[in-house]
């Protein structure tokens, strides 16, 4: 398989912070808002460099979303920063009416998504945010896989006119995508070409999919690995071309199965090219406290789970 080198593990939220700073230097219309989590979101560098374009809103996320909608009127491009739970579920109606329905150019940037938030537990581990956001008409939904990709995505979404949900996380994870990548919204990245099964992964599960691909190769199975950083709009062409070749699919995400990436892919396949699909996702459950690694294992989101799902998908294809 194609080899990927970990250039040194980093948190994706730091990619967001670095991207926001670079963006601030190059685009005077970019402004940022944060609800008392500036350090956690790695927004301090932007705040220090551009104090007039940074707004501390306190612990008041609903107001932050409304402010962001208003800031677009007159040409600003607001980036909001807080945890994924407080970026979506807590403020769903504010996003729905003032941002999505109103067509406002707001970038909702969410850290600490999924189980890998870790010890804080289920109150903070939202596993429903992709579903909530992808249901909103006109909303672009992005879940990046590493530091470099998060930085590139943070910069790229400023060029897209419309609301965007950008989802990233807390822990240090392998940084393996190119620093100079050209991030294209809605364009999937084929990380490894294969013929027996297609593994479509997003966010932190992309590296695990690569680990699974290596193990599958050891078992004599050729897996195609797709990094689907944009969940909406979905890159249907790349997915359908891959499934035409492999005939079966595994989707992998740090999110509920209900409403997640897997359901988007499944819906596409049912409409265009039915094929066996196995889901690596949280199965209708809340999370809990634990280390990120412990949680990913307990809730079935490890590379071993992807290997097992791939074998099941292949066996269903062949039965």
């Amino acid at each position: 398989m194609t080899e990927y080198i970990n250039q040194g593990s980093k948190d994706t939220r730091s990619g967001f912070g670095a991207g926001l700073l670079e963006l601030g230097q190059n685009n005077p219309n970019v402004v940022a808002l944060c609800a008392d989590l500036t350090g956690s979101l790695k927004m301090n560098d932007f705040k220090d460099a551009f104090p007039d374009r940074f707004f501390q809103v306190g612990i008041a996320e609903a107001n932050m979303m409304g402010l962001a909608a208003g800031l677009t009127i007159g040409g600003k491009i607001p980036y909001t920063g807080t945890f994924a739970n407080f970026s979506t579920g807590r403020v769903y109606d504010q996003i729905r009416q003032s941002i999505a329905y109103s067509g406002k150019n707001v970038k909702i940037c969410a850290s600490h998504s999924g189980l890998t938030l870790g010890e804080d537990g289920a109150t903070h581990q939202i596993l429903e945010d992709i579903g909530l956001m992808k249901m909103l008409p006109g909303m672009t939904v992005i879940n990046t896989c590493d530091y470099n990709q998060t930085k590139a995505a943070t910069i790229a979404i400023a060029e897209h006119d419309g609301p965007v949900y950008l989802r990233f996380g807390r822990p240090k994870v392998p940084n393996f995508t190119p620093a100079d990548q050209n991030f294209q919204i809605g364009k999937a990245v084929i990380l490894n070409e294969g013929t027996d099964v297609t593994i479509i992964a997003t966010g932190h599960l992309v590296w695990k999919a690569l680990e699974a691909c290596q193990e599958l190769e050891n078992q004599g199975i050729s897996a195609e690995v797709i990094n689907i950083h944009t969940i909406k709009p979905l890159d249907e062409e790349t997915i359908l071309a891959s499934v035409a070749k492999t005939g079966c699919v595994v989707t992998a995400e740090e999110h509920q199965q209900n409403g997640g990436l897997g359901e988007s892919v499944g819906g596409l396949l049912v409409r265009k090219k039915p094929a066996p699909q196995q889901f690596v996702a949280v199965n209708d459950s809340f999370g809990e406290s634990g280390t990120p690694d412990q949680l990913m294992e307990k809730y079935g989101l490890s590379s071993a789970n992807i290997v097992e799902a791939a074998n099941q998908a292949i066996s269903r294809k062949n039965s």
Partner: peptide, 22 residues
């Protein structure tokens, strides 16, 4: 901006006012 679901307009107005200042 859309309105109807109540309580959101003061935030939006304050945001637009900030942009005017900027």
């Amino acid at each position: 901006v859309a309105s109807g679901s109540l309580g959101q307009g003061m935030s939006v107005a304050a945001g637009a006012a900030l942009t005017k200042k900027l």
